[in-house]
Nucleic acid binder design. Structure first.
Lengths: 226, 226
DNA sequence: TCGTCATTCAATAGAATTGTTGAATGGCAG
DNA sequence: CTGCCATTCAACAATTCTATTGAATGACGA
C-alpha cells in the first residue's frame, strides 16, 4: 500500500486497468458499450443481470478509466472512454487467441471446423461489396443496428435468419457480422445459413472495429436508443 | 462455472489473460522478462521477492499463456510468450495514461514538470545518432545491457551516472533509455544529468519496444545471462 | 412539495487471490 | 546411490472480489 515508490505506484495504476478487464461480465459489458452508449438498465437487460450488479461493475470500469458516464435527466449513459479501450481489449484477445489452447478448443467445438469458418477481412468485404458479389447482413438486434452499421448491410437479427433466408438471392454469398471478432451471433448465423443451403461466411471484425478503422458508418434516421 | 455457453466460455478465457495482467508485481515481472529470459531465482533477486512467490506468479502467467518456460538443466528459464504480450501491456498502459489522472499525478510529482521531460522518439533518435549529435546511454544494469542494446549505446547503470558524467562530451546532448516507456531509471538518469549541468532527455521507448519495432539490436560477446 | 423512477450506496456472506511457510519434485554432480 | 539445488506444490491466514439485498440519492413531473 505504500505509494512512496513511483515505480510501484505506476505498476499499480496499470494493474487497476488490467484488473478491471479481468472479469468475463465486464468484458461483455465493454463489447456492448462498444456498440454505443447505454443506460445502466439497458445494459442490465441486454446481459440478463440485476441492475445493481451492472451498476457496480460499471463503477469498477469507471474507476479504471475504461468507461465514462454522462448524465441525461434521470438516466446515466455509459460509453467507452475512447478507442484505446478497444485496442486494449483486442490486445488481450490476441494473447488469448495465440496462447490459450482452450480458446481454440471452444471455437472448434462449438462452431464446426475452423477451416469452414474462414472469415472475410474488412478490405476483402469492401471489394466484394463494390463488385456486388455478396449480400451483407448485420445480425445484431435492431437497436444496435440503428446506432450504426456498415453501409449497405441489411439488418437480420439472429431470430429472423430462417425467415429471411427464404427470400435471399441464392446467387450471392452471404457475409454476416455482429459485435466483434468473436461475437457468437455471426458464427451461428453462418451455421444456420449453411444448413439452409446458402453460401455464407463471417466478416472477421465487428462494427466497433469497422468504426475504429475510420470506415464509413451508416445510421438509422432516429439517433439514440435508450 | 458452466461452460455450456460458448460466448461466456470465450469471455472467461479472455478474462484469464487480463486477470493475469492485473497485478503490479506480475506487470513488473513482464517488464523484466521483456529484457530477456530469466530463471526463477534471477527474477526473484531482481525484484527483491521470495522465490516461491515469484514461482507462483510465474505459474499464473504461464496458465494465461503470457510467458513460456524452457527447462535447462536444473534451471527453468521463463520468457514472454511472444510480441503480442508486449502489445497487450502497451495497450493497458495506454488506457491508464489516457484516463487515469493518478498516472499523470505520479509522473508530475516525482519527475519534475512534464514539459521538461519531453522525450525523443525512436525515429528522432536514429536521426540524431546518424548525425552524431547525441550521446546515447543505456541506464539498465550491465546484465540486461549485455542481452541486447541499441547499437552505439554506452552502458551507464544508474549508480554510475555521476562518475560517468565527469568525462562526458559536454557538447552533445545525452539521451537515456532503459526498460520501457515508464521505466523509472531513465527519468532519474535525466534528472541527475541535468542537475550536473548536462543537457539530457529520455528516449520515449525502452529496449523491448525498440526490438519489437524490428530495429537492429547489438549484443555483448557473451550470450546468456543467468 | 411529493411521488416516481434510474441509479448508486452499504452491508452481507461466499468465493477467489495473496504472501508465507515448509515440504515435495526432478535433474545434476559426485 | 546420495546429497544438493532450483523449482514447484500444499496449506494456512489475511485480504480482496463477487453477487445479492435493501436502503439512500438525485432528478423529473405533477
Amino acid at each position: 500500500m505504500s505509494i512512496r515508490n513511483p515505480k510501484q505506484a505506476l505498476y499499480e495504476q496499470f494493474a487497476i486497468v488490467a484488473k478491471a478487464l479481468g472479469h468475463p461480465l465486464r468484458l461483455e459489458m465493454i463489447e456492448h458499450l462498444a456498440q454505443g452508449a447505454r443506460s445502466v438498465e439497458a445494459l442490465a437487460v441486454k446481459l440478463g443481470q440485476p441492475v445493481a450488479n451492472i451498476s457496480q461493475h460499471l463503477q469498477a470500469l469507471r474507476r479504471a478509466g475504461i468507461v465514462s458516464a454522462e448524465r441525461d435527466g434521470k438516466f446515466v449513459h455509459y460509453s467507452l472512454a475512447d478507442a484505446s479501450v478497444l485496442s486494449a481489449f483486442a490486445a488481450v484477445r490476441g494473447v488469448a487467441e495465440r496462447h490459450l489452447a482452450e480458446v481454440d478448443r471452444i471455437v472448434r467445438g462449438y462452431f464446426d471446423a475452423r477451416d469452414d469458418m474462414r472469415s472475410v477481412t474488412r478490405d476483402e468485404l469492401q471489394r466484394l461489396m463494390r463488385d456486388g458479389l455478396v449480400t451483407l447482413i448485420d445480425v445484431r438486434p435492431a437497436d444496435e443496428f440503428a446506432l450504426g452499421h456498415v453501409p449497405g448491410a441489411i439488418n437480420v437479427p439472429l431470430s429472423e435468419i430462417k425467415a429471411w433466408s427464404g427470400g435471399a438471392d441464392t446467387g450471392k454469398e452471404v457475409v454476416a457480422y455482429c459485435r466483434g471478432p468473436w461475437c457468437v451471433m455471426s458464427f451461428e448465423a453462418v451455421a444456420a445459413l449453411r444448413s439452409l443451403g446458402l453460401a455464407a461466411r463471417r466478416m472477421e471484425d465487428g462494427m466497433p472495429e469497422w468504426k475504429a478503422a475510420g470506415l464509413p458508418v451508416e445510421m438509422a434516421a432516429d439517433g439514440v436508443a435508450n
